[in-house]
Each structure stands twice: as C-alpha cells, then as structure tokens.
C-alpha cells in the first residue's frame, strides 16, 4: 500500500510538472521509469500510473472547467458526443491519459521483476 502511495505521488507530481513544458505523452517514459525504479506489485504500479496521471489531468481540467473553459468544454462535450456534460469530459479525458500512464507503469513494474 505504501509503495503504491509513494509511486502514485511521484507520478502525479512529476507528470504535472513535466507536462507544463513537454508534450502529454511524456507521462509514458515517466511512468515506465518511475515504476521500474520504485514500483511495487504490478497491480499497485498500474493503479498508481492510472490515478497519478489521471489526477495530473483532472485537477487542472477541473480548475479550467470552473475558470473560463467551461463553456467551451460543454461545446466539446456536445461534439464528442458526451451530451454536453463537461464534467464527464473531465473524467473521461483524465482516464484516457491515465490508461497510458497505467500501462507504462505496469510495463515498468514487470520490467523490474523480470530483471
């Protein structure tokens, strides 16, 4: 549990910082590296990658949804189509990025075991 929590926090903080400057897919090598270095069980690594990266999207997206981008998010949520629900869009887009993070972390954890 502890290893999950540390990995999750590391991923969340570093992914948030890295994405300020780098493309979003930087979460892939980041999660891979962090999980290979610190990862616990495969399940914990996947969860930490998924939630850490998702949170790195959920927080800023939720903030922006409340501060200036809500109207546009509603339109994009109509376009996609998600029935115009911008919070559903926040949730799903975070999960999408989280899935990449989770898979990368899973790979990292398995890599660590296989060494």
């Amino acid at each position: 549990m502890k290893s999950f929590f540390i990995l999750f926090l590391l991923i969340f903080v570093l992914a948030s910082l890295a994405q300020l400057l780098l493309p979003w897919w930087v979460v892939l090598p980041l999660c891979l590296g962090l999980a290979a270095w610190r990862g616990g069980s495969a399940r914990a690594a996947f969860g930490a990658g998924l939630l850490g990266v998702a949170l790195s999207w959920w927080l800023p997206a939720a903030w922006l949804n409340l501060n200036g981008a809500g109207l546009l998010a509603g339109r994009v949520a109509t376009l996609l189509p998600l029935g115009g629900n911008s919070w559903l869009l926040v949730l799903l887009s975070g999960l999408l990025a989280g899935l990449v993070g989770g898979l990368a972390a899973l790979g990292g954890a398995w890599l660590r075991v296989s060494k």
């Binding site: 979003w24 897919w25 997206a61 922006l64 981008a69 809500g70 546009l72 994009v76």
Partner: peptide, 18 residues
C-alpha cells in the same frame, strides 16, 4: 488527435477565457 486536444496543459482547455 484526442489526447493533444483534451490535455489540460496544451489542449482546448487552454482556450478558455476568464
């Protein structure tokens, strides 16, 4: 490009107007 469009760091969220 879904993730680039939906990323809160680079995507459409950055087009908000406060």
């Amino acid at each position: 490009p879904v993730a680039r469009l939906l990323s809160p760091y680079q995507g459409f969220w950055q087009n908000g107007e406060s």
